[in-house]
Simulated scan of single mutants.
Amino acid sequence: MHLTALPCAPGPGRLTEGPVWHAAHGDLLWVDITAGLVHRGDLVDRDDDSGLPDLRLTTTVGLDRPVGAVAPCASGGLIAAAGTTFLRIDEAGAVSEFVAPAVPDDGTPRRMNDAKCDPRGRLLAGTMAYDTTAEAGALYRLDPDGTVTTLLGQVSISNGLGWSPDGRQLYYADSPTRRVDVFDYDAATGALSNRRPFADTGPAGLPDGLAVDAEGRVWVAVWGAGQVRAYTADGELHAVVTVPASQVSSCAFAGPGLDLLMITTAADGLTARQLAAEPDAGRIFVCRPGTRGMPVPPFADDPARASSYPTSPHEHRGSV
């Protein structure tokens, strides 16, 4: 299956990443990593006959450091993986420090990259070196009580987090390996085991952010290829979404029915000639992939409110 994504209205960012549908608010969150910006936007009608919505930027919060990803909190506000720390952003946009992992003190500057909440509302977040030094990053788990656990070490560029519909498998990409791996995931403890290859993106590009649909297919943003590729649970190629921007950074299911695929791209590092050939690089794109995603749980810092969060696409709230 071949699909094409359309650009949305918000202007290009430098390193646009981390889209996540905020079910409680019925809107989309995303970040511009190197600019330190956290954006929020509404889905609105598009002025054409494509049948797809557009995106309208509503608010932006600026941070004093790069921000790899954000996730909604069950208590309200957001949790952000930013710099080498975890921050809280309240609903008024005020920012406070929450906790920081023990990052190696070896003189290598690092930052947070991709992050996402597991089915129990724990946040998994990975790091990378600014200069992409091999094996300088790690993957951490942040529990709602502030405990930080190192799950993986010797990671080069931590990316691509997503869980199977039953929560028993975690899909993960260390981008320079050009491979998405899958782990067995213990939902009760948040422990990983039995790492094995899942899908190889080959010479065309690097696996970046990913999303899993309700049927267990894994939709992978392929940086450098101008594509999102969907793989079946057996690792077979199912669909390709063509994106008119080479540096495709992530994707997320969004909308009231979780039937839209929102795709982020980046302009960072492109030459003037490349930017002229890719005028929409750095924008968010949208397509309707013919399947539904799964609700992403919030960071479970308020168990009572977290338990009332939608757990299927049919419970999803919001408006287009």
Rank of each mutant, 00 (worst) to 15 (best):
D301N: 13
Q247R: 14
F86Q: 04
V148S: 06
T133L: 14
W30A: 01
M112F: 15
Y130R: 08
A281S: 15
P289A: 03
P279Q: 12
R65M: 12
I89C: 11
T264D: 01
R40G: 12
V182G: 02
L192C: 03
Y140Q: 09
I33M: 07
D49R: 05
R56W: 08
A204S: 11
V95I: 15
L206K: 01
G153N: 13
K116M: 12
I33R: 00
N194C: 07
C117F: 03
G51D: 07
S249F: 00
E97T: 05
S96F: 00
D131T: 12
D27L: 09
G36V: 10
L192Y: 12
R168L: 13
G162T: 05
C73P: 00
N194P: 04
A245D: 01
L37W: 11
G62C: 04
R317G: 09
P207L: 10
T147I: 04
L210K: 06
A300D: 14
M294G: 02
V103E: 15
R283T: 06
T84D: 12
A23I: 00
A80D: 04
P313G: 11
G318P: 03
S158P: 12
I33S: 00
A9V: 03
A9S: 15
P165S: 12
D213M: 06
G162Q: 09
A191M: 10
S164P: 10
A239W: 09
T132N: 14
A138W: 13
G146Y: 09
D301A: 06
M1S: 14
R178G: 01
R110C: 12
A129F: 08
P203Q: 07
D64H: 13
Y185C: 11
A129E: 08
G11W: 01
T291H: 04
R229T: 11
S246V: 01
L237D: 02
L37E: 15
L37Q: 15
I263T: 02
P298W: 13
G290P: 08
D208K: 08
L55H: 11
G235Q: 10
Y185W: 13
S249D: 04
P165T: 09
D48C: 12
S156G: 05
S246E: 11
P19K: 01
R168D: 13
C287M: 01
D143E: 15
S164K: 05
V248H: 11
R56Y: 10
V243G: 06
V61A: 05
A24T: 09
P279N: 10
D166P: 07
T16M: 10
A188E: 15
L151Y: 05
S250H: 07
G190Q: 11
L152F: 03
L123G: 00
H316R: 08
A74E: 11
D114I: 02
R283S: 01
L78R: 13
E215Q: 14
V155W: 06
H238W: 10
L142A: 10
R179K: 10
C73E: 07
